[in-house]
């Protein structure tokens, strides 16, 4: 963390000179509980769930109407829109598929994201019951919920676990990649002449070159 330490030292030095210490400046006003409630839509592991309930079956109808055009009937994705399901066991392969079931660590993230950003182009339009229902269906598509009669609600949400949660690690670049802190080589750093091993032109996907391939 030496970079962070250096950065802090610099900021403290500059800050002390430029900004005299002040107590409260009395700018702004107190936010009301009502104002906060309208905008505080965040859900996180174990907290923030709104009241409500919805079944997988109810979610399926909503999903087919408002989600399937982009994400596919089974979450398989239409065109280049994000895939929601599948990809289990692919993360260490050459072609990893990062779906909710294969990659996402927390079910609360699914509900939070649908609540704040979906349906695309009509965000924050779902009622709380619709939100539970669609979330239940998307988790059903990922085999996290197995029973199509299942009703998801604030009380049983915490039971849902996504399989990839243990596979996230904290940023460890400064220890794992400590060899990048070094005295760089200046002369004869590699044997022989440099050989071109790959060219952008081989792929020919730069814009204006015509239509390129589909990527995710």
């Amino acid at each position: 963390m030496r970079g962070v330490v250096l950065g802090l030292a610099a900021v403290v030095a500059v800050g002390a000179a430029a900004e005299p210490r002040r107590q409260k400046l009395d700018i702004g006003r107190e936010a009301t509980a009502h104002e906060i409630a309208g905008w505080d839509i965040a859900i996180r592991p174990g907290r923030g769930l709104p009241p409500g309930k919805g079944t997988v079956k109810e979610g399926e109808a909503l999903y087919l109407e408002r989600c399937a055009a982009c994400h596919g009937e089974f979450g398989e994705s239409a065109g280049r829109w994000p895939i929601l399901s599948g990809g289990s066991g692919t993360l260490s392969s050459h072609d990893p598929v990062k779906s909710i079931g294969s990659y996402w660590p927390y079910a609360s993230t699914v509900m939070d994201y649908i609540r704040r950003a979906m349906p695309y182009g009509n965000a924050q339009s779902l009622s709380n019951d619709e939100l539970y229902a669609v979330t239940a269906y998307v988790l059903y598509l990922n085999d996290v919920i197995k029973d199509e009669e299942f009703e998801l609600n604030r009380e049983n949400f915490a039971e849902l676990k996504l399989p990839n949660e243990p596979n996230f690690i904290q940023d460890n670049r400064e220890s794992a990649e400590k060899e990048f802190w070094k005295d760089p080589c200046m002369a004869n750093c590699m044997p022989g002449e440099a050989r071109i091993a790959g060219r952008a032109r081989t792929l020919d996907v730069t814009p204006e070159a015509g239509k390129g391939p589909k990527v995710e």
């Binding site: 260490s92 990062k98 996402w104 660590p105 939070d112 460890n172």
Partner: peptide
């Protein structure tokens, strides 16, 4: 909060299938 942009996106998948967050 472990929201979408710091879990499903902007996490760095390594060769062994683990991901840095």
């Amino acid at each position: 909060w472990h929201h979408r942009e710091e879990t499903s996106k902007y996490t760095d998948l390594l060769e062994n299938g683990k991901a840095r967050r």
